Amino acid sequence: MATRQVIRQRRRRRRLMLGATVAVTSVGVLVYLVMALLPGHKVDAGPAAATPLVTNQPTVAETAGTPSPRTTSSPSPRQSASSSASPKDTASPKAAKPSATGAQKSSRGSTTPPAAGRIRPNTSYQGVATAYEAGVGDGACLFGPSPDMMIAAMNTTDYETSRACGAYVLVRAANGKSITVRITNECPLPCAPGQIDLSQQAFAKLADLKVGRLSITWSLVSPSSIGTMSIRYKTGSSAYWCGIQVIGHRNPVARLEVSTGGGWRSLPRTSFNYFISADGSGCGKAIRVTDIYGEQLTVSGLAVRPNVAQPTRVQFARH
C-alpha cells in the first residue's frame, strides 16, 4: 500500500511540473508573438543602438499653444526670398498719381558756376538805348505775350544764341532815370554790342520817344518780386523729339539737362530759346536747370505736353 501511494505522488508531481513548464513556455511564446505584432516594433537578435525618436504627433507644449521649433511660423530662407520678391508682400509705397495741378517733384542744389557768358553778374556795360514797337511783347525768345511791356531786345552779340533770354537788366540813362526790363527779343544788326532796343513803353520811362537814341549803362539784376518758374515743351514734342523751354526764371539760364537713366545729358540751346533733344533722349524725364550762378533746380514728373507752360514749385535764389 505504501509503495503504491508513493508512486501516485511521484506521478502527480511530474504532471504538475510538466503543466508548469508548458504554461511558462506558452506564456513566453505568447509574449513573443504579441511583441512581434506591435506596429513599428523590430525584433533584433542583438541590442539596437539608441536613436532619437522622431514623431509627427503634437507635443503637450504645442497643444497648449506654444509652438515648438518644428512648428514655428517663421518661413524658411527659400520662402523668405520668394515672399520678399512678391509685389503683394512688399511694403514699398506706390508711385504718386499725377494730379490736375501737376505731380512734379522739385529739388535744389548748387554746383560750380558754368562758363560765364558775355553778360556777367556785377558788371556794368555801356551802350545806347533805342525803341521799337513790341506789340504784345513776344519775340525771338518765344516766351509768348508778355504780362507787362517792360521788355527789351538784346543786340545779337550779347543775345548770345538766346543765352540772354529772360534776363532782367537794370538800364540807367544819363539823365538819372532808370528802368528794369526783361529780355524777350533779339535786336539784329545794325544793333551794336552793348545796345538795347527797349519797348516804346519802357523807353518812355527814360526819355521822350522823339529822342530816338539814348546813352545808357546797364547791368544784370535779380528781381525780388517774382513767382516760380515754368517748363514748356515745344509744339511737336514727343517721346522721340522734344524742345524744352524755361519760363519765368529769375536769373539767366546757363544750362538745361535731362535725365537719361544713366546720368544727365546737357541739351544744346537754339537761337529761339529751346533746348533740343533731337533723338528724344530724356523727353518726359527729370529736368535739371542751372543758372549763371551755378544753382541747380531739378524738376521731375512733368509730362510731354506740347505748348503748355507747366508750373513748377521752384525758383532761383536772388543775387
Rank of each mutant, 00 (worst) to 15 (best):
R305K: 15
G301N: 03
N273R: 09
G144M: 10
R232Q: 13
A64D: 05
S110Y: 08
T55H: 09
R288N: 04
A85L: 14
I216K: 11
R232I: 04
L209D: 05
L33H: 00
R13Q: 14
C165L: 07
S92H: 08
G212I: 00
S230A: 15
R182G: 03
L18R: 07
S73V: 13
V43W: 10
S219C: 00
G166S: 09
Y274S: 11
Q195T: 11
T25N: 09
S237F: 06
K94N: 08
F143C: 11
T112Q: 14
G127R: 05
R265F: 11
G28E: 04
Q200D: 14
E133F: 10
P223S: 07
S107W: 10
T157R: 05
L214Y: 11
L214D: 12
G176Y: 11
I216V: 15
A20D: 01
P87T: 06
R70Q: 12
R11P: 00
A254C: 04
Q201G: 06
Y159P: 03
A23H: 02
S124Y: 02
R8V: 12
A207G: 03
L16Y: 01
E257Y: 04
I292K: 01
I287K: 06
V308F: 13
A207V: 08
K234G: 15
S215V: 13
I247N: 13
A48M: 11
N307R: 10
T71N: 10
P93Q: 07
Y274N: 12
G127T: 09
K210P: 01
V181W: 10
N122F: 11
V136M: 06
M154L: 08
A207Q: 14
R250A: 09
G282R: 08
G236C: 10
T260S: 14
T123D: 01
L198M: 11
R12Y: 02
A152D: 12
V181N: 13
S224W: 00
C242V: 03
A140E: 13
R255Y: 01
I7C: 01
